[in-house]
Computed example of a mutant assay.
Amino acid sequence: MKLSAPVHQLKRKSKRLARDENIPLHQALDRTARAEGFDAWSLLVAKMAAASPAGKLFGGLAPGDLVLLAARPGHGKTLMGLELAVEAMRSGHRSVFFSLEYTEKDVQDCFRAIGVEWPRFDGLFTFDGSDAISADHMIERLGTAPRGTLAVVDYLQLLDQRRENPDLAVQVRALKAFARDKGLIIVFISQIDRSYDPASRPLPDLRDVRLPNPLDLKLFDKGCFLNDGEFRFQAVN
Rank of each mutant, 00 (worst) to 15 (best):
A50C: 10
A51R: 14
L57S: 02
A46F: 03
A49R: 03
A54H: 01
L43A: 14
L57C: 07
S42F: 01
F58V: 01
L44Y: 03
F58E: 02
V45L: 00
K47F: 08
A49K: 04
A51M: 13
L44D: 00
F58N: 08
A51N: 13
G59V: 08
A51Y: 12
S42C: 02
D39T: 15
G55D: 04
G55P: 00
G59K: 10
L61I: 07
P63F: 13
G59F: 08
K56N: 01
A35K: 09
D39Y: 10
G59D: 14
A40W: 02
G37L: 11
A51Q: 14
A54F: 03
R34N: 15
M48K: 10
P53V: 11
A46E: 06
L57Y: 00
P53F: 09
L43W: 04
E36W: 00
L61V: 04
F58D: 04
A62R: 06
S42T: 04
A62Q: 11
G64N: 02
R34S: 15
L57V: 10
K56R: 07
G59L: 07
G59H: 10
M48W: 07
D39W: 11
G37M: 12
A51G: 13
M48H: 09
G60I: 07
P63D: 14
V45Y: 01
A54G: 02
G37V: 13
K47V: 10
K47T: 13
D39Q: 14
G55T: 08
G64Q: 01
A46H: 04
P53A: 15
A62C: 12
K56S: 08
D39S: 15
V45H: 01
S52G: 07
L61T: 02
L57I: 09
G55Y: 01
A50R: 12
F38E: 02
A40Q: 05
A51K: 14
W41P: 05
D39C: 12
F38R: 03
M48L: 15
L57H: 03
A40C: 09
G55N: 05
A49T: 05
V45C: 05
L44W: 00
S42V: 03
A51I: 09
W41H: 12
A40G: 08
A50M: 07
G37F: 10
V45A: 07
K56I: 06
